[in-house]
Write a protein that binds this DNA or RNA. Structure first.
Length: 291
DNA sequence: AAGAGACCCTGGATGC
DNA sequence: TGCATCCAGGGTCTCT
């Protein structure tokens, strides 16, 4: 199931005790929505690349050959992947990871030094993939399952209900926070919105998945959906670095209640927000009202 | 099935 | 003040 949608915003906090953040489902969705009307129907006539490892598959020369002269038929999202459907039934996939960013620029415009892959479009404009940390990857495949086959359900899909989540959590002997970050469990959640959803549902991140009651599972389901939808409505979170494809920031960062808020008052109960490391990831929560 | 650790990479923070 | 070094940060893969 592919989500027909919009554009993305990675987040990035400066170093004062906070953290860097990356594009999660809402930011990828925003990116897709913004790029879609600008790209559908246009052709890729060539590619420039100064860091071939950004092309995950196939090998660069083959990639170059296969992408050339391809027309973009549609633009979609699945989890945190951006999917370009090409006119030869191949798919160009982009994962922004932490600092990736896609934008369209005139060919005459001087590129940012962190742009490593540039798709030349038929009218001279360019689709630029900028990525400071070089974690992001580009894939060209003829079978989507090759890359997306293992992804879990889409949290905003109609089929993903509270009952679904309850069934998925039941019997899972795993700590909740790392499980929610596992893309094969649910596709699209990242560190920021997982912390926010758990806080919203008043559930402690270190609870075991199987310990959630049916009511708690339904609450968490509702929180995951409402947090993601709010983030999409607010054009994603921008802290420091993140920009939408048109260069403007998102607004969701102003609505974050726990992520990056260590030491601040919990908006619900006033107790200080804590930070701990769970599954190797910074985790923000309120020890007083998340049970 | 679950979890720990490594790896990818950069730039801001820290130490000297 | 300037330079060198350290390490956070998220997703994925490998190994146990």
């Amino acid at each position: 199931m592919i989500i027909r949608g919009s554009d993305a915003a990675p987040i990035s906090f400066s170093r004062n005790g906070l953290s860097k953040a990356m594009p999660e489902l809402p930011e990828v969705e925003i990116t897709v929505r913004m790029l879609r009307p600008m790209l559908i129907g246009r052709s890729i006539t060539g590619i420039e690349n100064d860091w071939p490892r950004q092309i995950a598959t196939p090998e660069f020369r083959l990639f170059q050959e296969r992408i050339s002269q391809r027309k973009i038929q549609s633009l979609d999202r699945r989890g945190k992947y951006i999917i370009f459907t090409l006119d030869n039934d191949e798919f160009l996939l982009v994962h922004l990871k932490m600092t990736g960013h896609l934008s369209i620029a005139a060919g005459s415009e001087k590129p940012d030094p962190h742009v490593h892959t540039t798709f030349i479009l038929n009218d001279g404009d360019q689709l630029r993939f900028k990525d400071v940390r070089k974690f992001g990857r580009v894939y060209l495949v003829n079978n989507l399952d090759e890359i997306l086959g293992q992804l879990g359900p889409e949290p905003l899909d109609r089929d993903f209900t509270g009952e679904t989540l309850h069934r998925m959590l039941r019997g899972r002997n795993r700590v909740l926070k790392p499980l929610l970050l596992d893309q094969t469990f649910i596709a699209g959640l990242g560190n920021i919105y997982t912390d926010e959803a758990l806080h919203d549902a008043a559930i402690h991140p270190s609870r075991m998945a199987k310990s959630l009651t049916k009511i708690e599972s339904h609450l968490l389901h509702q929180s995951i959906r409402s947090i993601l939808l709010m983030a999409i409505r607010r054009n994603g979170s921008t802290v420091d670095n993140f920009r939408k494809p048109d260069g403007t920031p998102g607004e969701m960062q102003n609505a974050l209640k726990v992520y990056g808020q260590a030491g601040a008052d919990c908006p619900r109960c006033g107790a200080p927000i804590q930070r701990m490391v769970l599954g190797g990831r910074g985790t923000h929560y309120c020890a007083n009202c998340q049970m």
